[in-house]
Design a protein around this nucleic acid. Structure first.
Lengths: 343, 343
DNA sequence: CTGTTAGCGCTTTCAA
DNA sequence: TTGAAAGCGCTAACAG
């Protein structure tokens, strides 16, 4: 039933050479003659030889595996980042293990551990919200000398290479766009948790208002979970409050979708009565009615950039690597949800 | 910088016992006294010991890792299936490696190989379209005695356990629902590739028509890539053809979204002029305007079911396991896109 | 260009 | 209840 797999020793025996020669041939070591290489590859094929990466990993200490931690993979943004990472990792002969933290610190700690036990050669992560500011698990990774790169959801508390988009700029661009559409009373939805990216978008919002001499109004800012129901919630509260407003800038596409639902239910016209914009360019944003103005974060490029930083650390023979930070430029995607007539 | 990690030998030395005792203690072997166990765990903690799974895997031949292959992870359906698998795998101490085939047979072959090289204890896969009917890579897996479970996109050509939803029934339910809404000329969008699930949904469509004495019309069936642009394409062709119709049942939510876009552009009212339904219950379907009628496939449950079948194979000591097939029941989710007034 | 040798860290008979 | 010894399959000095 379970035929025992061929090893390099089997190949060696068949050719009356030694295992080390076979190993070298298989790894294309330049010091092996073409003739032996060819012979080795032929026999390997005949025996249906499959290298045992585990043995190689144990011996060499390198598993050729990278662990990626994201809050959840069913977000288009994160799965696209992963795709970007895979693109560059695969060409370099590295595989990728994807783990999800489901936004919970307990899970994050446990997956970091699993990844470490699986002896990944390094970790790339988008961290979860963490009010305790306890980053021990990640600091441990660094202490062990294992390359760590953070992307998107990062913190300066962890001293390692990072790649982010300029969320501040993104927030600024959306707000500026709404202002240029003639909006003066712009509501902002932001996260109720302490996640950097949302703070930055918020900062961009405030700064744009300032630059265009529009007074900032604290009661215009609503915090929610940045999901569909959070957006619905905030919008209901907003409408109940009776405040006048002419635009909503939600720092999340999902919350913007919630806002859209509630406003439609109340017969508020988008964009004529209220202009609406989200953030992230989730695929569904082009499918809503009206299509949603949003910001592209170039996730594939972010994955590639993260992988590049990662391999820089990995390749550096020198003990200390200065943490790098790559900042990507966001792009405003204007769609019908924020286009006032005659503009 | 890079402190060498503690091994069981370090623990053994500290306690003046042998590595084998430490190993047994760590694995909770009943033949070890509680006292030694306690001591071992204490020292392990002190030394910040992390087990080297790679060494264990090499020695035992078990990596405690399951490989999952899906077309792409940024489909809500697949990421939810993965979540279901993780739920049961993690509780049993197994980790999960996710690989994407991106719908290409070359990629599929190569990831199967990578997974095998990584010495996963088994593979769960949703296969790609494959007109050559060449399933050698999967048959190889079975031949090696490595548990294989197929889910969603399966084929009877591969003799192994499978879990699917009753796509035939799903197709039937949607069609029946449309008929009950008074529709008589129902268009069907199906895949232009030979993927089982779409054939089944198609079959359900035909059978429902038959049961309600509605003549089947071949010119009502459009094949496309089941993506947004495919749906747009088919809808444009459909409208150009000048055929009369009163409903569209798309076997994919994305293609249904494309149909919705084109119809809106042409000022066709949904559902009043044309009723529309998709398939899969992708999250965006509740966000479109009108919200899209669709079919839930219970992806998390599918993942759990697949994992259960998987561990059944794994646990079976007997050489031969009879391939099992789990069939899940789909659920029709009726939303505004298919609700005719007065019904 | 190839062979010898040792060992990565762990599990697991066999023996005590 | 614990120890001794062997070895999983591979790589990498070192030696020639």
């Amino acid at each position: 039933m379970k035929p025992k797999k061929a090893t390099i020793h089997d190949i060696a025996k068949k050719l009356s050479i030694t295992a080390s020669t076979v190993s070298r041939a298989l790894n294309n070591n330049p010091r092996i003659s073409e003739a032996t290489k060819k012979a080795v590859f032929k026999v390997a094929k005949d025996l249906n030889y499959q290298p045992n990466n585990i043995a190689a990993a144990l011996r060499s200490g390198k598993s050729q595996l990278i662990g990626i931690i994201v809050p959840r993979i069913n977000r288009s943004f994160f799965s696209s980042v992963i795709r970007g990472v895979e693109e560059v990792a695969n060409t370099l002969g590295y595989g990728v293990i994807v783990s999800q933290s489901y936004e919970k610190i307990e899970n994050e700690i446990s997956v970091v551990n699993s990844l470490l036990n699986a002896r990944v050669d390094g970790i790339m992560a988008s961290i979860v919200d963490n009010k305790t500011e306890n980053y021990e698990h990640y600091e441990n990774v660094i202490k062990k000398g294992i390359p760590l790169v953070l992307f998107d959801r990062t913190t300066k508390e962890i001293e390692t290479s990072q790649v982010v988009i300029d969320d501040y700029l993104g927030g600024y661009m959306v707000t500026e766009h709404l202002i240029k559409q003639g909006c003066k009373k712009i509501i902002h939805y932001t996260s109720d948790r302490t996640i950097n990216i949302y703070k930055e978008r918020y900062r961009g919002y405030i700064e744009a208002l300032k630059d265009y001499n529009i007074p900032f109004n604290q009661s215009f800012v609503f915090k929610n979970n940045m999901l569909l129901d959070g957006g619905r919630d905030s919008t209901e509260k907003l409408l109940e409050s009776g405040q006048k407003f002419d635009a909503i800038f939600s720092a999340s596409d999902y919350a913007a979708a919630g806002a859209m639902q509630v406003m439609k239910e109340q017969n508020i016209k988008i964009p004529d009565d209220i202009a609406l914009a989200g953030f992230s360019n989730e695929p569904f944003t082009s499918l809503t009615d009206p299509p949603l103005t949003t910001v592209s974060q170039f996730p594939i490029e972010m994955g590639q950039a993260a992988a590049e930083l990662f391999f820089e650390i990995l390749d550096s023979t020198k003990k200390k690597v200065i943490p790098q930070k790559t900042v990507l430029h966001p792009e405003l995607i204007v769609r019908a949800s924020s286009l006032k007539k005659g503009k």
